[in-house]
Nucleic acid binder design. Structure first.
Lengths: 356, 356
DNA sequence: CGATCTATTTAAAACGTTTTCATCATACGA
DNA sequence: TCGTATGATGAAAACGTTTTAAATAGATCG
């Protein structure tokens, strides 16, 4: 309890100017040097086991926790993970779900999650340059990759750890988590066909994103196999406001040979489709069917039920977090840095390589 | 360009071990002392205007940006704003919208937004203790206040800057942004009455939260004024899954004197209500009406249209961000730290005190 | 018994800022 | 001509860590 053989201020209280206990405080109490305390807390093997225990105990007693700023300054590590938040994600909690998942993966680690918003149409690449140049974080997560995504290229060149939500077609492999949108769309379309629908329409993601291509590919594969009529609804995509989609559906229905089956990449989109068709006097399950991607509980209460295939965004976030931590820790084993989530598999049953 | 009268490494490149330009780099280039450079960049009046300009130019040329860790260590300021993310916010993008707003307010400042997730049912108060004790941030934002919110009390006692989304009934005034839920509910109920509905039901927030009380108060005031039959639907609230609300609506309809007008505090809730009533063979606008709070574009595409009153969550976030910055800057003028948003007023037309 | 090891501990430097306290001209009033 | 403002700059300490390089004391050994 009392300090000895050292020039020390009397008590065991926080001798600090800011009132927070530091390594120095512990050093004074134990009579050890700051260096030793630091090493002891880091569990360095060169420090005797008794000293380590004693230091740990004192640290616990006085409620010591290391100053992140000082650690960061000294080591260059920030203990921060950044996520690039896109404006499109405002609706239906994409961002919130993914963040909750990431946070879950970060739980118990020294890492914290910081949000780098990317609205105001700033070019994505600027935000990333900013993060790299100012070493704002030890790792980065972002979504909506393009096949030749310049962000991925920039980060790869700089050796900056990152994980994308979505794949690219770049030659150099990089960490990602993706949902198998091909299988989603293929399966959705097959279900429509199984329900007897023969004039199928797809509402996919905005052109240019990898996932939109995958959805289209899955859709096309299924319709070609079955040999039915199909179309990809032009002028609209998943990012459009619900009203725009509803109007587009109504317009389409006024033309000839309207679709009787819709594959929808999102929930709001499905809802808008139902609304548009209802306006035209048609009933879901009777004159037409929908299979949609589900990412929340929104559609589960809608009557008549919309047939859905689930994508678990929180699990996606958790995977991305885990993978990023692994990457930061130095892993270059691409097998444990890439993960393609199957529409059927819930989080718990993913491959072992991921369940750390 | 060339350094002079100083022992200096030859070129103007980043003489740094980590390769990043520092104050030292600029000092070497200009031949000034680090102190002077620091002051010049801080625009200190004691430094001559020419020197200030010269330093600024060099800083720009070599792409200098201050090391946040060092600043933080020295000043004790973190330049970080934290938001406590609640699990309930996963659905319908509450969190994402508010964060986008906060980020907008932080735009151009030195502040960054970090997310402190609070799921896993950890007591709220622990998260806040953690933030205070480890000085994780300079300010905190959180939502869903209770009338005697212990978090508010803790933060106030510690003099830690914060802004709540929602009011409390505590004696000591604190910064907040709130939506006038009384007026919302009052107005919603009045609209139902104006539509000729006379047996009104309310679906409000979970008991215990301040805003739920305000909603009920508004509802009660309106129904009492009009003298019509009313009820607050028991066993469910806005946080319930849509399916639970739908079922509750169906059960209620099976009993006698079912409501013909619903005031709904949220969009999912409104959707679930429609679904439940449709199941019972009733049509919105014909046998019953709904007035709901709207926070996204979700309902705008639904047919028949649901009558809504808007709450702009992104604007709320932006206000909270601005107010928190003001509070951190030292303001104690409670008039510019509290804001009650009127359901009618869009962001642009708020009182001058807020438009920084 | 002096020399080399080994096991533990320590002093001091460094990370990049900000801040306190000088220093040094130059100009000014007396 | 001297003291004293004044205006501009600098040296050095400090923030709380981690890390490099030493020091100390036993223990082992030839």
């Amino acid at each position: 309890m009392a300090a000895r053989s050292k020039p020390v201020s009397a008590g065991a209280g926080p001798a600090n100017s800011r009132g927070k206990p530091t390594l120095r405080t512990i050093a004074d109490i134990t009579g050890l040097a700051v260096t030793t305390v630091s090493r002891a807390l880091a569990n360095a093997p060169q420090i005797s086991i008794e000293t380590r225990n004693r230091v740990r105990q004192v640290a616990l007693d006085i409620g010591y926790s290391p100053d992140r700023a000082a650690q960061r300054l000294k080591t260059g590590r920030t203990n921060v993970i950044a996520i690039l938040l896109e404006p499109h994600e405002e609706i239906l909690g994409y961002g919130t779900s993914v963040m909750a998942g990431i946070a879950k993966a970060l739980q118990g680690t020294a890492y914290h999650l910081i949000v780098m918003p990317n609205f105001l149409n700033a070019a994505n690449i600027d935000a990333i340059n900013y993060i790299i140049r100012n070493s704002m974080a030890d790792g980065l997560i972002f979504s909506r990759t393009e096949p030749l995504d310049p962000r991925v290229m920039l980060l790869s060149e700089n050796g900056f750890p990152f994980v994308t939500h979505g794949r690219t077609e770049l030659a150099t492999a990089h960490p990602f988590v993706d949902y198998d949108n091909f299988t989603f769309a293929y399966e959705a379309t097959r279900r429509l066909i199984a329900k007897g629908r023969r004039r199928l329409a797809l509402i996919s993601g905005p052109a240019g994103y990898t996932f939109a291509g995958h959805i289209q590919h899955g859709f096309m594969t299924a319709v070609r196999e079955a040999g039915c009529a199909y179309e990809i609804l032009s002028d609209i995509d998943l990012d459009c406001p619900a009203g725009a989609i509803r109007d587009r559906i109504r317009r389409r229905y006024a033309e000839k040979d309207p679709p009787d089956g819709f594959a929808c990449g999102g929930e709001v989109c499905a809802l808008a489709t139902i609304t548009g068709m209802t306006d035209c006097g048609l009933t879901l399950g009777l004159e037409y069917d929908i299979v949609a991607k589900q990412t929340s509980q929104l559609l589960s209460a809608i009557q008549p039920r919309v047939d859905t295939i689930y994508e678990d965004l929180t699990a996606t976030g958790e995977h991305m977090g885990r993978i990023l931590l692994r990457r930061i820790a130095g892993s270059t084993n691409i097998n444990e840095l890439q993960l393609l989530l199957n529409p059927e598999l819930p989080f718990e049953t993913q491959p072992a390589s991921v369940a750390d």
